[in-house]
Nucleic acid binder design. Structure first.
Length: 943
RNA sequence: GCCGGGGUGGUGGAAUAGGUAGACACGCAGGACUUAAAAUCCUGUGAGCCGCAACGCUCGUACGGGUUCGAUUCCCGUCCCCGGUACCA
């Protein structure tokens, strides 16, 4: 590879790309507007967090794909919205601020500038006039506004949608709250209309707080002391914070929460209406975790006033219950434990507390628990069963209590064996109960009171009816999904627009900052750390308007707030009156194609769907689902190179052995910078220069075939592993088009793959060859006006067809291959004719918009872009040009062909008759034994 | 464990309503050009066999079976890899 590709007469990407970037900027080529005469198409990339490291080499993968698709849709006549922006609130900028004292807005701004520069270098067709930044006050004004709208709303299960809080207050005034079916706090007492009317205005207000979609609650949260903040479940991995790796503990705190659980069922149902990958939908389904079952109330022996409620998905096994298990944290534990068992129970609770979350997860096999001494009464047969506590029952799921059926559940079975508790079979279909539990639903019930002799399908309704009659249980659907914690004790985020006033009972009540005073701007602080009294950094706020009168909410919103609605802001980014105008929303509606990584499956993508459904309920947006189709680009992993240092007393100087020969020596592998390795061959001179400490002048290298080959391993891309490849370096050397094409060529878009540049020369050669179709060896323009011949048309039409199919399927790697074949074939045909090239450019422009600049002028296109809509016309030409040919195999060998014009699709029978005739002719009248016609392309004949 | 996706040359990967496996590219080898190198171009390149050559033959898509005229593709079983999730009652 020449280090300076491109002389004056050669393809010179640096000059071409620079020229066209300036041109696009000047002419605002990619600026788009609402155009009711054309259909819209919205292509969205997941916007990046602008980190200090600059654009990651994995980012362009998805951006290139979405850019290709945007260009493709434009060529087909769509008005394409293709914007970019920045998710610019976040922890790293704040950490940096803590270390350096620099305002996060400053560093964030610098990072964004760099990102934009890099993105523009890559030639994306974004409309930069629509750029958004979540940390701009003009943007987060509307994030705060949505928060306030959520606060002003409640979820009505009767209408199954969110409604303004006024409709709830009205209902309270009419009939109290006994008939209200709402998503609300658990501790809401029932009251009548009269009682409601008797309440003070403030008491009424306090009451509504239990129903609003954002609310304050005492919640167990993931508290990370290292970061001084609360984290969401998806920010915690293996008991430590995802960012920074600090330990995380469970802590009870007053927190802003969002009632996403109100939408659990709709979030589940909506998945059936959208075109996402099955694995992603499955992840969301698991996260929401719907299970259908029943709540059953068990009495407690000696405690007539108490009962234990359990959730079960198998009420039909109720007669097989031989013990109960409570979570150690369950509130009844202390009340029902007998004196004799007190010490054992206390010890057990103590030991579970010591076990970290991590230990509990890692160690699933150890069976432990303690007997409380109390007994529960099975409401169906009045039999007492012992109550245990055990840490395999989770306080956070269901009621924190389970009815244990050892014959049907393996964990219960294990527990029963360990504590020597009875195992009662309840179905005649159950087998091997001595060895393991059998969760079958086959057979008829035995030992089962009112359901004896029934089947599974018959039993459940009988049991539920029996329970409901007596008020001891009911059918119930349970979700794993929890309400989302909405506060972070951090500085660099949207301030929660709330202040507090002390109420009658001395408790502070939250009130919204009036909407016309939004945005509540992030105040400046002298330090980005929590205050001495342990308040969040906003405790240091200076210049807050009402600070002397009221206490402000000091937490900020979580990272996902700003990203949960940003696709609407692109529709109308400058609007200061609304988050986007109804006109813009009505035209652009929803995202037709969304590209991004799978890592957001249970975070961003779930919260966004939640907010969207809320906005829909309140009439602000028209569509129920925000992202119609979603493609996940695979993660780009790092590809590390290694050198092998020989470990031996024999040598006084450092010795490195090539990878293929390392088995013959004892060696230690060392990471080596991938940027001084090409095709896994080490540049020894550069290596020596870069590591004088170990590889200086007198180091020895044991080569194979004259080269030093490096070892390879796929790892996460990181600085310490010396495997980071900066896209800028590639662009500087080969040009953006080569990088773009290469990233597409690397493999299927959705597949995770290690980044390596081993094949990049191939795509560079291709683009150069392509360039040469247009220019002669002196760099002069070659395009002329001759009509193409049949062979040339054939090549073009074949390519157009293939590329269109591949593009529709997001199979860009095969599309690039098809281009390569096309250019090779045209090259040998010496084809350089205007009409052919017109079509070729339409195809190629998504991938290489810079290469063919002269064409814009020569063909009279609007400069710098392509708007020709010739796609529909070529297909007709293709039909006239070509024919289907069916080879006829006789005893496995091709001996003849039959052909059909493309406009007449023969039936299989017609083919068989024709094949028969052809074979007979070929064999001079002999008749074949068997003719098998295969629809696709081959006719087999057996004689 | 469960759920989802995979296993094809030296490498990245093509091809699945069943129909010439290995497109395209990298790498490698040989050749042309060159004082030389780089770049470029041409030829070859799954493994093996036969032969002067042409033609041709056998085996090959993780492994073992099955269905079929025909299986990388469909079915059953096994092994391995990647991603997600985790005591969810």
């Amino acid at each position: 590879m020449n280090d300076q590709p491109g002389t004056l007469n050669e393809y010179n990407p640096q000059a071409i790309e620079k020229k066209w970037q300036q041109f696009w900027e000047q002419h605002q080529t990619y600026r788009i507007h609402i155009d009711p005469t054309r259909p819209k198409y919205y292509v969205l990339d997941m916007f990046p967090y602008p980190s200090g490291a600059g654009l990651h080499v994995g980012h362009p993968l998805g951006y290139v794909a979405s850019d290709i698709f945007s260009r493709y849709k434009r060529v087909l006549g769509f008005n394409v919205l293709h914007p970019m922006g920045f998710d610019s609130f976040g922890l790293p900028a704040e950490q940096y601020a803590i270390q350096t004292g620099q305002h996060p807005a400053l560093t964030t701004g610098q990072n964004i500038t760099r990102y934009i520069e890099q993105l523009k270098n890559l030639g994306f067709s974004y409309d930069w006039n629509r750029e958004v930044r979540t940390s701009d006050p003009g943007y987060y004004k509307w994030t705060q506004w949505i928060f306030e709208e959520l606060f002003k709303s409640w979820y009505n299960y009767k209408t199954d949608r969110a409604e303004p809080i006024e409709t709830l207050i009205q209902e309270f005034g009419h009939r109290g709250n006994s008939r209200v079916q709402a998503a609300c706090d658990e501790d809401v007492p029932t009251f009548s209309a009269a009682e409601w009317k008797a309440m003070s205005a403030e008491a009424k207000y306090a009451f509504t707080l239990k129903y609003r979609l954002t609310y304050v609650a005492e919640a167990t949260v993931n508290w990370c002391a290292g970061l001084g903040s609360v984290l969401s479940n998806d920010e915690v991995k293996d008991g430590v914070s995802e960012r920074g790796g600090f330990p995380v503990e469970q802590k009870l705190m007053r927190q802003w929460m969002m009632r996403i659980t109100a939408y659990a069922q709709r979030l589940l149902d909506g998945l059936n209406t959208i075109d996402w990958t099955e694995s992603l939908k499955e992840q969301q389904r698991n996260w929401i975790g719907r299970s259908v079952g029943a709540m059953v109330k068990f009495g407690v022996d000696q405690h007539a006033d108490k009962s234990i409620e359990v959730f079960t998905t198998r009420v039909d096994t109720i007669y097989g219950v031989t013990f109960m298990v409570l979570a150690p944290e369950h509130e009844l534990v202390s009340k029902i434990t007998t004196n004799a068992q007190k010490q054992e129970v206390a010890e057990y609770i103590e030991s579970t507390k010591k076990r970290s979350e991590r230990d509990r997860m890692a160690d699933v096999k150890t069976i432990s628990g303690a007997f409380t001494g109390a007994y529960a009464i099975n409401p169906f047969n009045e039999q007492p069963v012992p109550i245990y506590i055990a840490d395999y029952v989770l306080a956070g799921y269901g009621t924190g209590a389970v009815m244990a059926v050892p014959s049907g559940d393996q964990r219960d079975w294990n527990f029963a064996k360990h504590f020597d508790l009875p195992i009662v079979p309840i179905l005649d279909g159950q087998q091997n109960l001595e060895k393991e539990a059998d969760a079958t639903k086959e057979g008829k019930y035995i030992n089962s009171g009112i359901i004896d002799g029934l089947t599974y399908a018959e039993a459940t309704p009988v049991l539920v009816a029996w329970m409901e009659e007596r008020g001891i249980g009911k059918a119930k659907i349970n979700y794993r999904l929890r309400d989302a914690v909405f506060g972070r004790q951090r500085y660099w985020g949207e301030p929660v627009p709330v202040y507090y006033k002390e109420g009658e009972n001395g408790q502070p009540l939250p009130y919204l900052i009036p909407a016309d005073e939004l945005p509540l701007e992030l105040p400046s602080v002298n330090k980005y750390l929590p205050t001495e009294t342990g308040e969040p950094p906003l405790g240091r706020a200076e210049g807050w308007k009402y600070k002397s009168e009221y206490a402000y909410e000091l937490s900020t919103m979580p990272g996902w707030a700003g990203s949960s609605w940003y696709w609407y802001r692109y529709m109308d980014p400058e609007n200061n009156q609304e988050f986007a105008s109804p006109e813009a929303i009505d035209y652009w509606r929803d995202v037709d194609l969304y590209l991004g990584g799978t890592e957001h499956a249970t975070g961003h993508l779930l919260y966004s769907r939640f907010w969207n459904k809320f906005l829909k309920d309140r009439g602000f947006v028209p569509e129920d689902e925000p992202f119609k189709k979603l493609i996940n680009q695979g993660m780009i992993q790092g590809r590390s190179n290694f050198v092998y240092r020989v470990v031996s007393e024999e040598y006084s100087k450092p010795v490195f052995v090539s990878a293929g020969l390392r088995d013959q020596y004892g060696t230690t592998p060392l990471h080596v910078d991938v940027n001084i390795v090409e095709n896994d061959v080490l540049d020894v001179a550069k290596f020596k220069a870069s590591r004088p400490d170990i590889a200086g002048e007198n180091a020895e290298f044991i080569l194979e075939a004259g080269k030093y080959l490096c070892g390879v391993e796929v790892e996460k891309m990181s600085k310490s592993k010396l495997n980071v490849v900066n896209p800028d370096d590639i662009v500087a050397r080969y040009g953006a088009d080569t990088l773009r094409l290469y990233e597409m060529f690397l493999g299927p878009l959705e597949q995770a793959k290690p980044w390596n540049t081993n094949g990049i020369d191939g795509t560079f050669r291709f683009i150069r060859k392509f360039w040469r179709l247009f220019y002669n060896e002196n760099g002069q323009w070659l395009v002329t006006d001759y009509a193409p011949n049949k062979d040339e048309l054939r090549v073009l039409h074949k390519t157009i067809k293939k590329v269109q199919e591949d593009t529709e399927n997001f199979s860009f790697n095969t599309a690039v291959s098809a281009f390569m074949v096309c250019v090779n074939e045209l090259g040998s045909l010496k084809c350089a004719k205007k009409s052919i090239l017109t079509e070729l450019v339409i195809l190629l422009s998504p991938y290489a918009p810079h290469v063919t600049e002269e064409l814009y002028a020569a063909l009279g296109h609007e400069a710098g872009t392509l708007s020709s809509a010739t796609f529909p016309t070529w297909q007709a030409e293709l039909m006239l040009e070509d024919a289907f040919e069916y080879p006829i195999q006789i005893n496995g060998k091709v001996r003849a062909t039959i052909s059909f014009p493309l406009d007449t699709m023969p039936s299989d029978i017609e083919k068989e008759v024709l094949a028969n005739e052809t074979v007979q002719k070929w064999m001079e009248g002999k008749s074949p034994k068997k003719v098998i016609v295969v629809p696709k392309r081959i006719v087999n004949v057996v004689i």
